[in-house]
Design a protein around this nucleic acid. Structure first.
Length: 923
RNA sequence: GCCCGGGUGGCGGAACGGCAGACGCGAUCGGCUCAAACCCGAUUGUCCUUCGGACGUGUGGGUUCGAAUCCCACCCCGGGCACCA
């Protein structure tokens, strides 16, 4: 304890300053006592459901959470100030892999770790002062929650929308366990370092592909979603129109059933250029060919090495091997080799593709590597024109081509060298440089020569269809959603396996299948897989002995419908009628990293619930805001062997030169230099995370909220800076001083607009311009940083405004009162306190209407117009708003700075943009 | 590899085809102070020693009276790629 007689911060009535801790405790206490943010359905008022993505309870709140939930809180409080009945809920995405990792590390049960984290993080969230209805809170690991998910699943099973099939996973051969993609590093298991293998196991799937077209079409209705998110989803769903073609297998030995090898192509126009077929290693035909072909069997075995992620597969070197199988071209009947190729995936399309090396870059590279023929069958416009010219000389396109390529001497008699060169150069590029992948006109395609893409597509499709060799087909890139996880800490999949009856859904009256929480967790095997007692059950159909499914659901399952559950706390069904009032979500906020997976499953599950009659809308959320990441500078010192030891930014001080340029950084503890490692996403591994709780303790929640909204627009990444946070604290202190000093005045006259002088009018105009901008920035633009900048600017105007006359104080009073309300969504504690300082009784500020700009106060006597000569600024003029074009033009030409630049030049044109700019084109 | 973003002073950013750099940070100078902190005032894109001007939004090209903003090509950085959430 200090023995100082008086603290330097001791306050006297004169200097009583902003004390965030006291202000925040008072405001939060009031909100709690009055249950200020608990809401019920109220058909008399427009509703606004503002939802932020629920947090995973990882241990402690991080700055990304603070940013996400502050955005949601600003929107929620603003919407309520405009008269809406606002719901802002919060919950916990409680199942997941990190709990298992933590359980191994700390020798505790995943459930225990999770619940402790939730307790801690709830307190941290509450200290931020969010206007959340905490009565609706839940954790997704509660059986009360996941029972509804299990019930939905057994219903989907009965409808065939949930089904079981084999699919491939990452297998760690040492630990004998399935690995998540995240756990595969450079093709090896992250703990064992063993080379990961692909392994097929039976898993459950939801038929999201049945909804592919609807998910695609629905994007067109989502006007409130960011265009990049919709584009990413469109590309992910990947609708393509093409042709499914069956290739007859030449040798019955490889194909005892007589089945055709089916491929899907979006480029049927290139069919005549197909010179081989590539198939996946897991393709049945490949497996059959491998019997009795040890080399091929070994190659297919080799392809099993490595992980299953698309990024890994797509960046691998392209490799293949001839299977020895031959198929027949469906039009020419020519025999074509079938290759096993590592870039063909069994999970996409049919697991087989026709290869057209002349017009597909990947096939081209493969053909180069394995000396396979390349056929040119499509040409762009200029080559077609050259061929047409030659054809006029030699009679036919076919002859023209032969002549151009020197296969006949018919052309020698004509002077057509240029056209010949065009064709030869094109052929050379395809042979030696790269495939031509654009659309064009057909050549070397017999009866299809000369057709363009659409005509060729049509003609070849008809030809293939009439021969019974295939049909047109719409294909989607989207694959069914695999929901099985071979993990313990998840929702048990409600299925029983019976030797007689097969996979049987658990009857609804026996749900939930509860996950035991009090378990020993070693990490080697899931406790429910290891426990024969838990597994043992009886078949719901035949009553015989049976076993429970021990896989659990993908955690995306829980996060796909939580938004609906918030509307119906305590309901015995998944949701009840209250959902009809609240849904759809009016504003959804979360990280851009969820643009595809979560947001697609979320939309899909909503449609599943709609089709079950649980919700009425087609889409779960009408508006979406995707926030950027939070990043920070990294600092390090090199330890033994050059290994970098990362140092937290909080322990580092910057060194600058006289210009303020950063010259280096030192550790606060010893004053010695540290390395600067660049700006990275905040993470444990780089130790550049900033603890929001420490910031709140030091500056208060309002300052942290203010900085997280001011430092960057919400959609961009935000760079954390402690100096920036201090700047926000400075602003709040200044604002506090300005309001308390004003409130200390004995009386507060009312503004009389008619009697204001010029300076008073100007301040009042600035106030009302700010009101207009801030409302627009909060409500429409979601541009919180510029709203705050405008308020800072206004405070600068107010503090320079020294007028202590009656009307001077009246204008200042109007401004400060409005500013308290305008700032309320961002800094609700400060506003709560200052509202009372300004003489109002304690109240929930969201019930005070958001200020409205007075059009009369916005009027200006004159506007400044920039004048350019040839696009360069040469001066400015003042003009009355709405002044006639001729007068503005004359004033612009007369402006001395402008006139100087016009000397000796003719004015050719004058562009006048009313109220903004004049551009004089001269020369 | 594929899909989607981003690149503007010393730094974070502003500018919704019309005065590039609002606002904040940092820095410099000055004031207040015994002193430090707080606070207040001034300056702060680069270059030309100037009144004044030239240049300037990743690079190269284009559209336009006018481009940070629209189009094309390229470079660099970030997000996602179906088992991290």
């Amino acid at each position: 304890m200090s023995t100082e007689p008086a603290s330097p911060h001791a306050s006297t009535p004169e200097t009583a300053g902003y004390d965030p801790a006291a202000v925040e405790a008072a405001a939060q206490g009031y909100w709690r006592r009055t249950r200020a943010y608990e809401v019920v359905e109220d058909p008399s008022r427009p509703k606004f459901y503002c939802l932020s993505m629920l947090p995973y309870p990882s241990g402690a709140l991080h700055v990304g959470h603070v940013r996400n939930y502050t955005i949601g809180d600003v929107i929620s409080r603003f919407q309520r100030m405009t008269g809406k009945n606002v719901l802002q809920p919060m919950g916990w995405d409680a199942f997941g892999l990190p709990a298992e990792n933590a359980a191994i590390k700390h020798a505790t049960a995943p459930a225990k770790w999770t619940y402790a984290n939730i307790e801690h993080m709830r307190a941290q969230l509450q200290a931020m002062g969010y206007a959340i209805d905490w009565t609706r809170e839940f954790a997704t690991c509660s059986p009360d929650y996941y029972v509804h998910e299990q019930r939905m699943f057994v219903r989907l099973m009965k409808q065939g929308l949930a089904y079981r099939r084999n699919s491939v996973v990452n297998w760690d051969p040492v630990d004998q366990t399935v690995l998540a993609n995240e756990q595969v590093v450079d093709g090896r298991g992250w703990r064992t370092g063993a080379i990961v293998e692909k392994r097929e196991i039976p898993q459950w799937f939801l038929k999201i592909t049945d909804y592919a077209q609807e998910l695609l079409d629905g994007l067109d209705t989502l006007d409130g979603w960011p265009e990049p998110v919709k584009t990413m989803q469109r590309n992910w769903i990947g609708r393509s129109e093409g042709l499914e073609i069956g290739f007859a297998v030449a040798d019955a030995h490889f194909n005892p059933t007589g089945e055709r090898l089916t491929v899907f192509t979006t480029r049927p126009d290139t069919l005549m250029g197909a010179t081989f077929v590539s198939i996946a290693g897991e393709h049945p035909l490949a497996l059959r060919a491998a019997q009795g072909n040890p080399a091929l069997a070994a190659f297919i075995d080799e392809l099993r090495q490595g992980g299953v992620s698309e990024a890994e597969l797509e960046t691998q070197e392209k490799r293949g091997m001839d299977t020895g199988v031959r198929v027949l071209h469906p039009v020419t009947g020519d025999a074509m080799p079938v290759y096993v190729a590592n870039f063909v995936l069994m999970g996409y399309g049919t697991g087989a593709v026709m290869a057209v090396p002349g017009h597909d870059q990947r096939d081209w590279e493969f053909a180069q590597a394995y000396q396979l023929p390349i056929r040119m069958v499509v040409v762009p416009g200029e080559v077609r024109d050259a061929l047409a010219e030659l054809a006029r000389h030699v009679g036919s396109h076919e002859d023209a081509m032969a002549a151009a390529l020197g296969e006949s001497d018919a052309i020698d008699a004509y002077d057509a060298a240029a056209a010949v060169q065009v064709v030869r150069e094109y052929q050379r590029r395809i042979d030696e440089e790269a495939a031509y992948t654009g659309r064009g006109w057909l050549v070397n395609s017999g009866e299809f020569d000369g057709l363009d893409f659409d005509a060729a597509f049509d003609a070849i499709a008809r030809r293939v269809e009439s021969a019974g060799n295939g049909q047109r087909k719409v294909n989607f890139r989207l694959r069914d959603w695999g929901v099985s996880r071979q993990r313990y800490w998840g929702c048990p999949i409600p299925v029983v396996y019976c030797a007689k009856c097969g996979a049987v859904p658990v009857p609804e009256d026996q749900l939930p299948v509860v996950l035991p929480e009090d378990v020993e967790f070693s990490g080697v095997k899931s406790p429910i897989k290891a426990d024969p007692e838990w597994r043992r059950t009886t078949c719901p159909k035949c009553g015989g002995a049976a076993e429970r499914e021990t896989d659990t659901f993908d955690t995306f399952m829980e996060s796909s419908w939580y938004y609906a559950r918030y509307t119906s706390p305590g309901a015995s069904t998944q949701v009840d009628k209250r959902a009809d009032y609240w849904l759809p979500v009016d504003q959804y906020i979360g990280g851009i990293e969820h643009a595809i997976l979560h947001l697609l499953y979320f939309r899909f599950y909503h449609k599943l619930m709609r089709d079950e009659g649980l919700v009425k809308s087609d889409e779960p959320a009408t508006r979406l805001l995707t926030q950027g990441m939070v990043v920070a500078e990294t600092y390090y010192r090199e330890g033994e062997g050059g290994r970098r030891e990362w140092i937290n930014p909080a322990d580092v001080e910057m060194r600058r030169d006289a210009h303020g340029h950063v010259t280096g950084a030192v550790l606060k503890a010893d004053g010695l230099p540290v390395g600067i490692g660049g700006i990275e996403k905040m993470s444990k591994s780089k130790n550049n995370g900033v603890d929001p709780q420490a910031m709140v303790a030091r500056y208060g929640a309002d300052t942290v909220r203010l900085f997280s909204m001011f430092a960057a627009p919400p959609e961009q990444s935000l760079e954390w800076s402690e100096a920036g946070v201090e700047g926000m604290a400075r602003f709040l202190r200044r604002f506090w001083r300005e309001v308390t000093a004003h409130a200390a005045q004995p009386d507060h006259p009312v503004v009389d607009p008619a009697s204001l002088d010029a300076a008073q009018k100007t301040l009042r105009r600035q106030l009302h311009e700010t009101i207009q901008k801030v409302g627009d920035d909060y409500g429409r633009r979601h541009s919180f940083n510029t709203a705050i900048a405008a308020l800072m600017e206004l405070l600068n105007h107010v503090s320079r405004f020294g007028d202590m006359s009656g009307q001077g104080r009246a204008v200042r009073h109007e401004a400060l009162e409005a500013m308290v309300l305008l700032l309320n969504p961002v800094t609700p504690h400060v506003s709560h306190a200052l509202w009372q300082v300004l003489g109002h009784p304690e109240t929930v500020l969201e019930d005070v209407p958001f200020p409205r700009a007075d059009p009369a106060a916005l009027a200006r006597d004159s506007v400044t117009i920039a004048v350019q000569v040839n696009g360069k600024l040469r001066g400015t003029i003042e003009a009355a708003p709405g002044a006639p074009r001729e007068a503005v033009e004359a004033a612009a030409l007369a402006e001395p700075g402008v006139a100087r630049f016009l000397e000796g030049q003719a004015v050719r044109k004058v562009i006048v943009v009313p109220g903004k700019i004049v551009n004089i084109v001269a020369g």
